[in-house]
């Protein structure tokens, strides 16, 4: 099978999973205690509003009609209307999505940049002080609740030293890029952006840094003991080349898969990190929508989160297949 066909096959499977996600989210409406109208209407809604909602949702229709209607609406890009926020759910959710992606990407970048070298050094200098240091650091990292880490970072860097901002997003990352490449580059926007994103990115990224360090270390130890590495050494290839080109490449393949599966943890972590830092992303929208009993917004957010997960994992699988062509024929 070619890589292209593999990608198509994986995408078709992905569509099936997204359909499952939508079905589960649709079903959530019926595990809510009471009438489904309660799940949509504000608690203090008048009788007219309730009837209008019932008619709009087609609650008088048979279940399969409601279900098909829900799917067709989604395909048309209609996720319903939030009576509590007074906005279209699509507008709400996609308005919040960029902030969450920005935070998740920043956290992943912090994690990957630190973790891969740390894992490699840890493996190549096994049982030396640097290895013990890295092992303890990564053990602490996978064991620390990220919301608590966030509060501790606020305590030290914002309350004691007053270096960083602790609430909100500051500037849009797009504005930062524009200000840097503009006619008169300004560093100020970049600094403002960093002041807001640094602490949440560290709080969210630490777990992943720790996880990647552990995976890289054990993977590297595994690879370095294999025959091809010894053969390369015997041939007299430089250590750096063996480590970073041969062994690391093979180590990263399983690391990438685990990271794809852990994307859910990243988004889950973003939900709580956003709560700590008042980051205006999808996570705070989810929490708000539950506290306000704003089910259309919750359903829309869940669909977007689930779909992103599926999409990223297809991407991961295709990258995996590119790095390790045997997978395609599996």
């Amino acid at each position: 099978m070619s890589l292209g066909r593999f990608a198509v096959k994986r995408s078709l499977q992905g569509i099936g999973v997204v359909w499952g996600v939508v079905t589960v989210v649709f079903a959530l409406r019926f595990v809510t205690p009471g009438s489904p109208i309660n799940a949509v209407a504000p608690l203090d809604a008048s009788q007219e509003t309730r009837q209008a909602i019932a008619a709009e949702l087609g609650l008088d229709q048979p279940l399969y009609v409601q279900y098909l209607q829900y799917i067709f609406d989604l395909l048309r890009g209609d996720m319903g209307f939030s009576y509590i926020k007074g906005q279209d759910v699509v507008t709400l959710v996609f308005g919040r999505l960029p902030a969450t992606i920005e935070l998740a990407v920043a956290a992943s970048v912090v994690a990957i940049i630190l973790a891969i070298p740390l894992g490699v050094i840890s493996a190549t200098r096994r049982n030396e002080p640097v290895d013990y240091g890295a092992t303890l650091l990564s053990l602490g990292g996978i064991s620390t609740p990220n919301f608590w880490l966030g509060i501790m970072l606020i305590l030290v860097f914002a309350v004691e030293f007053n270096i960083f901002n602790t609430s909100g997003r500051g500037v849009d990352v797009g504005d930062v890029a524009l200000s840097l490449v503009g006619p008169e580059p300004v560093l100020g926007t970049l600094l403002t952006w960093l002041a807001y994103i640094t602490l949440p990115a560290i709080a969210l990224g630490t777990y992943f840094m720790a996880l990647i360090t552990r995976l890289t270390r054990s993977g590297m130890l595994d690879e370095l003991s294999k025959g091809y590495v010894q053969a390369a050494r015997a041939k007299g290839l430089p250590q750096t080349l063996i480590r970073y080109k041969h062994a690391l490449r093979n180590t990263l393949i399983p690391v990438i898969t685990v990271l794809g599966l852990q994307l859910g943890t990243l988004i889950g972590g973003a939900v709580i990190t956003e709560a700590v830092f008042s980051w205006p992303g999808l996570g705070s929208l989810v929490i708000d929508s539950i506290n306000d009993r704003d089910w259309p917004t919750l359903q829309g957010s869940l669909i977007v989160i689930g779909t992103s997960f599926v999409f990223v994992n297809i991407l991961v699988d295709v990258v995996y297949a590119y790095l390790d062509p045997e997978v395609v024929n599996d």
Partner: peptide, 9 residues
Amino acid sequence: VSLAFPSLV
């Protein structure tokens, strides 16, 4: 499908 939803969410 189950994995597509983060545990916490």
